[in-house]
Design a protein around this nucleic acid. Structure first.
Length: 898
RNA sequence: GGGAGCUUAGCUCAGCCGGUUCAGAGCGGUUGCCUUACAAGCAAUAGGUCGGGGGUUCGAAUCCCUCAGCUCCCACCA
């Protein structure tokens, strides 16, 4: 073998092993008689690139899946992508715009269906060009997906004929089924409208942001010339009589759509106006003053202008009035593209924001504006385009959610589906009990086209996968989530073959790993779909990761430019290093403050491992035949016990999803126990030889550690494992099984515990007094467990350069320093600064006395002795005895100083 | 407005049903060390009245109340 580099060079290693694993089919899974463990990836946007959130998310999934493989499960991780209707379409539209092409020009050239086909061709080309980048990035990260199962939420859509298959068929079949069972209906309702994408949005796709706006106080003149509104001060004195009322609004651009003014029915100020009429500024339109109890008398003037076509709240007032027999008009003045419609010149065709400015100016110029004040409020924005969302009535397709959600709510309440951390249960319950009907139609082209068919006059004729002669298909596509909610079912072909081998074997899947931001968008709906289609949950547990934030706690985002480029990160720190950096501080559900220093720690750890390997490897090359020394055997026994102890701990931590802690456990096991203690004990000293027996022991220990660590750092562990001993071709660490872990040997652990305590104390003594290592220290030992010391003393000796071990203090020189290890006493002959030593002993005595006093205070407290658990009392008694023993030794030493 | 969470060492955090190991870990700091695997390292070491106040208890970082600060989610009063 070539000379091993002093510093680990990860990049070629990572590329090489990933290719080897993939080629050997290490991640391939097909049903067999082992227990299944399935994870489906939250499908990223097909044309997206990896960001920090993905990195965290997918690292967690990979760690879980790799661990289960080691445990002997038949683990599958299903990868795939989402067609991301609105996001992808927006990119294609943008690209075409760069070429001077719009959807309309395509329609003009090719007719509606032809133009649409042209557009979809472009979209498919876009998808082919950029699709799959993210899957390559996942490979770089080490994601052990079963790539043969790669799924896509628009698989099986065949533009040439209507015989759809795969995912596409699942989606339209689901639509038809829900429609036939009455869960899907078409109705005109208020929707969230994105005027940029020109489509509806679900409530979840609307992001409210605080915006600095203006609150305009606008005058509406009474129609009745004799009508007066009395304005009084708080004492009730008449201040003024007006011929108008004033309405506060942030949206003067909608005034031309006003069809009523509403006040609270109990508002004393406006009682006389109820039933009267006012005139809309600029227009001749007369509108009534009506009462509605949703009005807040405290806000503004207590009068609300009712624009049913432009606000949900207003539309609800309209509906309540209608139910009560009062009809007001619905005038929709804002068109789909956000410009003014159904209004007179000069306003017609103005953009809504220009309209706001210009109409406010007109109001001011015409004595209709009382005042305008700065006002901060929340305004809905489109999640995808960031456009200010318009609320408008629109004819759309809806899913009746209430009943469908019931089993999904119960599943989580009962713990059939567990959320980690469980504090999200409250939010989940709140959403599921207040769920509204889901608007699923989108005025887009890229996506699953709605399987509804109309006659030439636009009447709905049928809902079915294929249409009849002369019928036109609904132009809209389905909300992306209407396909992704089928993900865990569809990737195992569970809808078209409900009794197929895959769905029966892998479903319900084991764990879903995703961010809490899509708990409702996606997680809840998958549970709904799972129960609807199969009467069965889609997964047992949901691991909710935190958001990745930067060091200052800001969310990572493109616009802030604070999100590191994953490829660059991996190049700098290696995939293993980045994975470790991400996992080091990511408790479930807690946000992760990402700091590159953590990746550096990961890289350093990889290097540490590499150098441990270098040592072992070099020792092996020069090893001579023969058995290990008794000390090496003892150290190995201890390392084995320590590994078993840690392995049990790691298993528990995995069960609780405490991945961060599991990694921490292994980090310490390897860095401290293995490198700092075990390897130091094993390696030959002062030119003495190293045997093949010893080498075999170390290799055995190291292999077990590599295996335990491999889910976290798959690449370097594989590399070292392969180099550590001869392996057959096609043999991989990935494919090994964890051995069953015996209970750790307590006596060995305790013995080594004493060794470490003694070594640390003696090292401190050396450092304090500047005693060079070459100067051997004799030790006079007072102990009640001489056998343990006899056995382990050589190990202590190995670290701190000891001379002779004398049992007891017979023949001890005048001047010694007392080192306490538990209740054992080590008297070490060194030159003593009497004054300093006295001070040290007195301080130690004072501390022990204080400690003893507090213990005795408890023990003489009858309520404690009576009330505390017996083992607690026993512990306190032990503490008392130990402290007394220590004190007497300390006092004796003090006395000996003279 | 409704709900959830957080506040422990300079930084990031762990401390589950109150009681050995309860005041911890990693990073960072300081001080020695190029000690034959590793300076991306080794050894030693300093740092906190567990956000403030009150209560329950023999005993509170841990349970309860309260105040303060921060974060997130939901609702969206024009």
């Amino acid at each position: 073998m070539a000379e091993l580099a002093k510093t680990y060079d990860p990049l070629p290693v990572e590329a090489r092993w990933y290719a080897a694993w993939e080629e050997a089919g290490c991640f391939r899974s097909v049903p067999d008689d082992r227990p299944a463990y399935a994870i489906v990836i939250p499908p990223p946007n097909v044309t997206g690139v990896l960001h920090m959130g993905h990195m965290l998310n997918n690292t967690i999934q990979d760690v879980l899946v790799r661990r289960k493989r080691l445990e002997g499960f038949n683990a599958v991780w299903v990868p795939g992508t989402d067609h991301a209707s609105i996001a992808t379409e927006a990119k294609v539209v943008q690209k075409l715009r760069g070429e001077g092409i719009t959807k309309q020009t395509l329609i003009d050239q090719h007719g509606y269906e032809g133009g649409r086909d042209k557009f979809l061709e472009q979209a498919r080309a876009w998808k082919d060009q950029y699709g799959g980048i993210i899957l390559q990035q996942l490979r770089k990260l080490g994601a052990s997906c079963d790539w043969a199962r790669t799924a896509y939420t628009m698989d099986g859509q065949d533009p040439q004929n209507a015989h759809h298959t795969g995912y596409y068929k699942d989606v339209v079949d689901t639509f038809v089924k829900l429609y036939n069972e009455g869960y899907i209906y078409r109705a005109e309702r208020m929707v969230n409208w994105d005027p940029v994408a020109k489509t509806t949005l679900s409530d979840e796709e609307v992001i409210y942001k605080e915006v600095q706006g203006t609150l305009y106080y606008v005058r509406y003149q009474f129609v009745d010339p004799d009508l007066r509104l009395a304005v009084r001060d708080p004492e009730g004195n008449l201040l003024e009589e007006r011929t108008y009322l004033t309405v506060a609004t942030t949206r003067p651009e909608t005034i031309l759509g006003d069809t009523a003014i509403a006040v609270h029915p109990d508002d004393a100020r406006y009682q006389a106006l109820l039933g009267q009429r006012v005139r809309v500024p600029f227009l001749a339109r007369e509108i009534p003053v009506v009462a509605d109890s949703a009005i807040d008398p405290e806000f503004g003037t207590g009068c609300l202008k009712v624009t049913p076509a432009h606000a949900k709240a207003d539309y609800e007032i309209y509906e309540r009035l209608k139910a009560a027999g009062t009809h007001i008009e619905v005038v929709n003045t804002i068109a789909e593209d956000g410009t003014l419609q159904h209004v007179p010149e000069p306003w017609l065709g103005l953009d809504r924001f220009a309209m706001r400015k210009q109409f406010a100016q007109w109001l001011a110029d015409n004595n209709c504006l009382e005042k305008a004040e700065a006002y901060t409020h929340n305004v809905g924005h489109s999640e995808r385009t960031d456009a200010v969302v318009e609320e408008r009535p629109s004819l759309q397709w809806w899913v009746r959610m209430k009943e469908l959600c019931q089993p999904a709510l119960e599943a989580v309440e009962s713990g059939a589906v567990q959320l980690f951390p469980d504090r999200f249960l409250g939010t989940y319950r709140h959403w599921m009990t207040n769920v509204k009907d889901w608007c699923i139609s989108r005025q887009l082209w890229w996506g699953h086209r709605i399987p509804a068919w109309y006659d030439t006059s636009g009447g709905l004729v049928q809902v079915s996968v294929t249409g009849g002669e002369g019928l036109a298909q609904d132009p809209d596509v389905l909300d992306t989530w209407f396909s992704s909610w089928l993900w865990p079912l569809s990737v195992f072909n569970g809808l078209q073959a409900p009794d197929g081998p895959d769905i029966r074997y892998y479903y319900p899947t084991a764990t879903l790993v995703t961010g809490p931001d899509i708990l409702f968008f996606w997680v809840a709906r998958m549970i709904v779909a799972g129960y609807y289609h199969r009467g069965e949950k889609p997964f047992d547990r949901v691991y909710l990761t935190g958001l990745v934030r930067d060091k200052q706690g800001r969310k990572m985002s493109k616009s802030l430019g604070n999100s590191p480029d994953p490829d660059a990160l991996i190049e700098r720190y290696s995939a293993d290093g980045v994975r470790m950096g991400l996992l080091l501080s990511s408790a479930a559900g807690n946000d992760l403050l990402f700091d590159e220093a953590l990746c550096e720690q990961g890289r350093n750890f990889a290097n540490k491992l590499w150098n441990a390997f270098r040592l072992i490897h070099t020792l092996g090359e020069s090893a001579t035949p023969g058995p290990a020394t008794p000390q090496q055997a003892l150290a190995t026994d201890w390392m084995a016990a320590r590994t078993h102890e840690a392995a049990h701990e790691v298993a528990r931590q995995f069960d609780d999803f405490r991945l961060s802690e599991a990694l921490g456990t292994l980090y310490k096991l390897i860095w401290d126990d293995f490198c700092s203690w075990y390897l130091e004990l094993i390696k030959p000293q002062g030119g003495s030889g190293f045997t093949e027996g010893a080498h075999a022991l170390v290799v055995g220990r190291f292999e077990e550690l590599l295996q335990l660590l491999s889910p976290f750092m798959p690449f370097i562990t594989e590399e070292i494992w392969q180099l550590l001993a001869p392996r057959a071709k096609g043999e991989f660490l990935v494919q090994t099984r964890l051995p069953s872990t015996p209970a750790p040997d307590a006596a060995t652990l305790a013995g080594m515990g004493t060794v470490r305590e003694a070594v640390t104390a003696l090292r401190a003594l050396r450092t304090e007094r500047n005693i060079p290592l070459k100067e051997a220290l004799d030790v006079y030992l007072v102990t009640d467990q001489p056998a343990r010391w006899q056995r382990f003393f050589p190990l202590v000796e190995r670290f701190v350069g000891l001379g002779t071990l004398h049992l007891g203090v017979a023949g001890k020189p005048e001047q010694t320093v007392l080192v306490q290890v538990g209740t054992d006493e080590l008297h070490v002959p060194v030159a003593v600064d009497v004054a300093a030593e006295r001070t040290r002993l007195e301080a130690e005595i004072a501390y022990q006395e204080g400690f003893l006093k507090s213990v005795q205070a408890k023990l003489t407290n009858e309520k404690f002795v009576a009330g505390a658990k017996p083992e607690v009392v026993a512990r306190e008694r032990q503490k008392e005895a130990d402290a007394e023993a220590k004190l007497s030794a300390l006092r004796a030493s003090l006395a000996a100083l003279g």
